[in-house]
Structure formats: structure tokens, C-alpha cells
Nucleic acid binder design. Structure first.
Lengths: 343, 343
DNA sequence: GAACTTTCTGCATACGTATGCAAACTGAAG
DNA sequence: CTTCAGTTTGCATACGTATGCAGAAAGTTC
């Protein structure tokens, strides 16, 4: 099974040159004469030689590995982001080492330790926060961190999110303009900045119209919790006629409960608005009105922030917020003459 | 930014012992006295020392990295598998390095080259095939490969799939028993074994009942292609009254077309059956009858095969097929007295 | 306490590559 | 042909860890 590896020394021997020469041929930007390059490449070709990235990392201190920490891939937003992140980083010669965690500090800390053991060049956490101790450790070993879709008050952590407060506010405006006065909120997890900010935005938007949230339950970014919340809120006789659900993933569950359990019409009886605009939201079965998180631009910002730190030695912490449009579809009543931002 | 790393030498110095001693303390199963261990661990703790996995790999020839090659994460089956694979491997001290590819040989070969550069201990491809040349190269460097959810006629490649032929056959039986005689097939990509086997199973099952497939179009595992196929097949006046769609991901698109474009009732006018049983299939909006690919057991088989090769030096190639039950839900007419396999 | 076995420790070296330095070479200018 | 600058090459060493070997220490038995 185990087979003898072919190393730069073997190539050097065959080509009749020094090992350093071989190394230089495979190092972009090094000083090599054309005939040397040719000789070496021919020998390398013949032996099937390829540089050992790990050995290289040991010397250069760069592994070209980015650690991605992610809690759950059930919500379509994350596989989508993962795919885009991976593709974007690959184009720059980096690759993603995936670490699954449950969303509690202990688990994150443990896993993050393993991550650092791999000498990763940078860390992206997708919708996962980290303890201060951990942030300090990453800073201490010089590994930049970007929180993707999660904010945290730590002046060492970069972060890229959509403008969650503004998004919540926009949704409030939209619902009010649609004539809704009794508006429920099944919130994103209150332990996350995204959940809190969206809720705060909603409240601010409603307040501006002199309205208060009719009822608010924490949906924990979880289908079951959100379903239960929907049952509770919409079984009552004086039920609200609109609900903003903290993300699309929960909104689908809520719509299912409304339609198939409570036999309510969406949007006839209840308007439903989500947050994220995952691909599924545009499928006709749900046709969900939702605030789009521009994952392309979020990924772009994440990658360029990370590479800035890694390759250009940048060290100013970025707290990037990206605005997204409200995607108007069929799950919520559309106010007369409401402008379609997507155009 | 760059910070001085703490190495085993530093720890050794502080603890007043040799570097080897430090190494041994961090190597499970090495011979160390209790007081030595205590001294070293104390010093390590104080300095925040953790072994450098890369340097260790260089010596041991084991990176504890598994390369995962995957084409697209849009189909919910794959993020789900990725999550489970990652969690399972993590439990064994391995981690997943993700490589996204488009599904053509060139792209796969290029990416797989990079993969080998990382000295991965093993490779899993999710629904991606590989060229013979590549299989040879992996074999040559002693890196085991497991094809997850994809078969290929190569005696060097392990593979784990569901029993696709039998699944297709089961579905044929089910539809026939339901009284359907005019049965369409929107097939999985004919360039993949899964697509071909499911189709062959369907045809065999129908043939046993003296029926031929009414119409068959390759859906390419793609939503748009499948939608177009559904439009074509079900716009005709003498349309079929049942369709087996090659996977759930396409089946959702097909149901959307049937219901929302063609205003057909599912299952009243048309029975729809999918393949995979992704989480979304059980959500009330689709409530899709589908053949379950037991991803838990598939992941288990994949991991144990891989670890067998890596850790126990196994070298018998596994071609594992796992049977899955038909999940009976509301998208297809249920034959009288049909036994529910799920019980 | 001697003789022996067992457990532990340090020394030295190896893994595969990158890079500073000095020597060797190249070519142009005088 | 000499001189000099610029380019290319090889030598030696370093990165951080694991491990075979031999010697030291500890434990066992009589």
C-alpha cells in the first residue's frame, strides 16, 4: 500500500542539478534560467513529481488552508455560501478545511483549537460566534478571523453581515404599507447578533408608524421551534395578519403550519416575510417574500478581507454591512404602487 | 502580525527536558513516566504549546486530512452528507478539505492534483467520477478513494451507493400497483451510474408488468432541465398519469411545474415519485413520495471503508450497495393495502 | 546488594522543501 | 582581453516534529 514518494531530491538527481534548483523551478518568481527550467520540468514530468504542500508550509509558514467553522448546513443559506467561498478561495490557491460544531462556546473552542493545530492561514466562521479567550488566541498566533453572517463586539474580529437592522426596518415599512397593523415576529435566535438586529430593525420600523409588535417569539433558527411558535401565535382567535420570520429556513416551516395545519391562506389570511432569499424561497411552492442577503457580495467581502490580512499584512479590522433588497413575491400582500427594488 | 510560534523545543527548555520527551508526551502510546508527563504538560500549558500538525505529518506521512470533492451543494442531499461525513470523520480525528469542481474530467483531474499535493490520507468524491488516469495516480501514491453516491467500473475505486437498480424497480412496482399504466421518467443524468441504474431498475420493473416507459427524458440532475422536461411531457393531451423523477431535487421542480404552471393536481392528475428523501421531501409543501437513500448508513460505510484502508492497511476494494425503503407520502397515489416499509 | 529485567530518557537523525549566501557563470562595455 | 554588473547555481541550513538506538534509571528477584 504505502508507496515511495518522489521528492525534489529525486528530480534533482535525475536532472543532474541541485535540490535548490528544483525548488526554485517550482517557486513562482524565483531566478531560474530557461534551460534549467526545461531540464527540471522534464525530469519532474517523468517521475510524476509534485511539490509537497505540507513540507512547503513548514518552511514558509503558510499553509494555504482556510478553516471554516460552521454549525449546521440544513439552512440552505450555508451550503450556498460554502460553495461560493470555496470556489472563490480556490481561485486564489486556498482551500477550505471544514469543521462542524454545535453552537456552544465549548464546542467551538475545542474545534478551533484543532483548527489552529493545522496552521491555517485564516478562519471563517459561518454563523458562529467565539469566546473572547479564543479571539485572543487567534490574534496571538496571528491568524485572522472573519465572522460570516454574525456580528460580535470584539475589536479583533472582522465581520461581514447584511445590514440586518435596516433589513428589519424595511420589512416593517413594507408590512405597514400593506395595511397590516397586527404584526407578529418569530425571531432569529436571540443569542445571535443577526437575530437581535433584525428584531430591533423591525421594532424601530413599526414604532415609526406608531405600532408595536403584536407578539414575538424566539424561533431559535430552528424549524420545530418556529413551527411551534406559529401554532401558538396563529391558533388564537384574534391572530395577527402578518408575520416576519427571522430567516427563510424557519419561514418555510411557518408557512407549512399556516397552510397545512391551520388551513390559513397565505397571503390572504396572513402575510409571511422571511430573511435570506435562499434559492428555495423563489420556488413556486413557497414563493416567499424575503429580504435578500447578497451572498455573492458577502463572500467577496469575506475573501478580500481575509486575503488582505494574509497576503498584504493588513491589520485594520473590517466590520462590513451589505444592504440587500426586499424580494417581493407572493407570500405577502403587496402595497399599492410599492416600488420593486429588484429592478 | 506574524508572531513567534511556540515549539516543542521551547517547552523542552522550560521544562528542562529533551525535545523528544515533549514529543512523546504528546504522542499517545509513547513511553513516558508520570512525573515527566506532568512537568511537560505544565510547561506546555504555560506557553500555550500545541503540536504542529503539519510538521507531524511530514514525519509520520499521515496528514489526517481527507479530501472531499463535490460538484454542487444545491441538491440538499450533499450538504446533508457533507455534514455527516465531516462529523463522523472529526470523531476519528480527521478533517475534511473541500474541493468544489464542475462535473467534467478536466476540472476533476486538475483539482485532484491539488488534493494530492496536500498529502491527503484519503479521498471521497460525492457524486463525481474520475478518469482512469487519475484513479491510477491515486493508487500509485497509495491514497484510497471512495466514490460516494456514484459507481464506476474501476477495480481500484471503492464505492458506496444505494441500491439504485432495486430502488427504481421498487418504484415501478409501486406505481403499477397504484394502477398507473402510462408512466413517464425524468431521468437522472445518463452520464452517471446512479441515473442509469435507477432508469434500468424502473424499466425492468415495468417490463415485469408488461409495460414500457411512456416517455423518458434526461433531466441532468438539473432543475431547469427537469422543468422543461415536465412541461414537454405533461402539456400533451394524452399525458402520462405518473412520473418517476431521478432525484428529489428535480422532483420539486417538476411538482412546481405541474401544479403552478400546468394547474394539474398532484397526486390527483399525476403521481410523482422522487429519489433520495432529502429533508425537504417531508415538508408538507411537497410531501414527496420518494425512495430513501439512507445517508447515515452510506456515510458510515464510507467512513469505515476509508479508515480501513488508512489505518488497517486494508486493500480490498469495496463496492457497497445499501437498500433503502420507499417513503410513502402524499405526492403519489397509494395502492390499496400497500405495506409501509418504514414501519 | 548483586544480577537481571523493564521502563524511561536523551542523542541524533530524518521528513521534503525554501532561502541567504557566496561562488560560478554570462554578457556587455571599455 | 579585462573589468564589472547582473544573473544563475549549489551549498548549507532551517522549519517543527517523531523515532531507532543506546544508555540511564527504576524495579524485581534471589
Amino acid at each position: 500500500m504505502r508507496v515511495e514518494k518522489v521528492t525534489s531530491v529525486d528530480v534533482a538527481k535525475l536532472a543532474g542539478v541541485s535540490q535548490s534548483a528544483v525548488s526554485r523551478v517550482f517557486t513562482p518568481g524565483a531566478s531560474v534560467s530557461p534551460k534549467m527550467a526545461e531540464k527540471v520540468l522534464k525530469a519532474a514530468q517523468e517521475l510524476g513529481y509534485r511539490p509537497n504542500v505540507l513540507a512547503r508550509s513548514l518552511i514558509t509558514g503558510r499553509s494555504r488552508i482556510i478553516g471554516l467553522v460552521v454549525a449546521y448546513l440544513e439552512n440552505q443559506f450555508y451550503p450556498d455560501a460554502l460553495e461560493k467561498l470555496s470556489t472563490a478561495l480556490q481561485a486564489h490557491g486556498y482551500h477550505i478545511l471544514v469543521f462542524m460544531v454545535s453552537n456552544d462556546d465549548d464546542s467551538v473552542d475545542k474545534v478551533m483549537g484543532e483548527l489552529l493545530d493545522y496552521q491555517v492561514d485564516g478562519i471563517i466562521t459561518a454563523s458562529v460566534g467565539m469566546s473572547n479567550a479564543l479571539a485572543a488566541r487567534c490574534a496571538a498566533v496571528g491568524v485572522p478571523v472573519v465572522l460570516f453572517n454574525r456580528g460580535q463586539d470584539d475589536e479583533r474580529l472582522n465581520q461581514v453581515t447584511s445590514n440586518n437592522f435596516e433589513g428589519g426596518r424595511k420589512i416593517a415599512e413594507f408590512l405597514v404599507a400593506g395595511g397590516h397593523r397586527k404584526i407578529a415576529h418569530i425571531a432569529g435566535w436571540s443569542g445571535s447578533s443577526t437575530g437581535r438586529d433584525r428584531e430591533a430593525g423591525l421594532r424601530a420600523g413599526l414604532k415609526a408608524a406608531g405600532i408595536d409588535v403584536a407578539v414575538c417569539i424566539d424561533g431559535m433558527y430552528n424549524r420545530e421551534t418556529a413551527s411551534a411558535a406559529a401554532r401558538e401565535i396563529f391558533s388564537a382567535a384574534d391572530r395577527p395578519d402578518a408575520v416576519f420570520v427571522g430567516n427563510d429556513h424557519m419561514a418555510f416551516a411557518v408557512m407549512d403550519v399556516l397552510r397545512f395545519e391551520l388551513k390559513l391562506d397565505v397571503p390572504g389570511d396572513v402575510s409571511v416575510v422571511g430573511y435570506d432569499d435562499v434559492p428555495l424561497a423563489s420556488w413556486p411552492a413557497y414563493d416567499l417574500t424575503t429580504l435578500r442577503q447578497p451572498s455573492n457580495r458577502m463572500v467577496e467581502a469575506t475573501v478580500s478581507t481575509l486575503l488582505g490580512w494574509i497576503e498584504e499584512g493588513s491589520n485594520d479590522v473590517q466590520k462590513i454591512q451589505i444592504d440587500g433588497p426586499l424580494m417581493i413575491r407572493g407570500s405577502a400582500r403587496v402595497p399599492e404602487g410599492w416600488p420593486d427594488e429588484r429592478l
